[in-house]
Computed example of a mutant assay.
Amino acid sequence: MKLHGYPKEGPQDAGASAELAEVTLEASPQELRDIAAFFLSAADEMDRMGAAYDHLHLGDAMPEFRTSPHLTVFRWVSENDGC
């Protein structure tokens, strides 16, 4: 697993992503439950789609997060996956 992110201010194009060492979520218990459900759904979709899976956005899957900072799940491909 790797974590990537963009600054709140400044360039946010695909080339500006930086690998992060830590992420802190400031959220309510219900938001954490909703995010956990999103992660489980993303994992199921990743299993279902296999190598065709690219990414999912929390805000697209759950409208209540559309105005929140963007949370995106990408498929991690290890050297052993053969993808």
Rank of each mutant, 00 (worst) to 15 (best):
M1H: 10
L3P: 00
L3N: 02
L3C: 04
H4T: 13
G5K: 04
G5H: 08
G5E: 10
G5N: 06
Y6G: 02
P7M: 11
K8Q: 12
K8Y: 15
K8G: 14
K8N: 12
E9D: 13
E9Q: 05
E9I: 11
G10V: 02
G10A: 01
G10T: 03
P11F: 09
P11L: 07
Q12V: 06
Q12T: 12
D13Y: 14
A14D: 13
G15Q: 12
G15I: 01
A16N: 13
S17M: 09
S17P: 02
S17E: 12
S17K: 15
A18G: 12
A18F: 07
E19D: 12
E19N: 07
L20V: 05
A21V: 14
A21H: 10
A21P: 06
E22W: 08
E22H: 13
V23Q: 04
V23D: 00
V23N: 00
T24V: 15
L25F: 11
E26K: 15
E26W: 09
A27K: 06
S28C: 08
S28T: 15
P29G: 03
P29K: 09
Q30K: 14
Q30M: 14
L32G: 07
L32S: 06
L32T: 09
R33Y: 00
I35H: 06
A36T: 13
A36Y: 04
A37Q: 11
A37E: 11
F39Q: 11
F39R: 11
S41F: 14
A42W: 02
A42I: 10
A43P: 01
D44G: 13
D44F: 05
E45A: 12
M46N: 06
M46T: 08
M46A: 14
D47V: 15
D47A: 15
D47T: 13
D47P: 00
R48Y: 06
M49L: 15
M49A: 14
G50R: 02
G50Y: 02
G50F: 02
G50N: 02
G50H: 02
A51Y: 05
A51S: 09
A51W: 05
A52T: 08
A52K: 11
L58W: 05
G59F: 02
D60E: 15
D60P: 00
M62V: 14
M62E: 10
M62C: 09
P63W: 08
E64L: 10
E64G: 00
R66D: 12
T67D: 13
S68I: 00
S68G: 01
P69H: 03
P69A: 04
P69R: 03
P69W: 03
H70S: 07
H70P: 14
H70A: 05
H70K: 14
L71K: 00
T72L: 07
V73I: 13
V73Q: 00
V73S: 03
V73E: 01
V73R: 00
F74I: 00
F74L: 08
W76K: 10
W76Y: 11
W76D: 06
S78I: 03
E79P: 05
E79C: 01
N80Y: 05
D81R: 04
D81H: 07
G82Y: 02
G82M: 01
C83S: 07
C83D: 13
C83V: 11
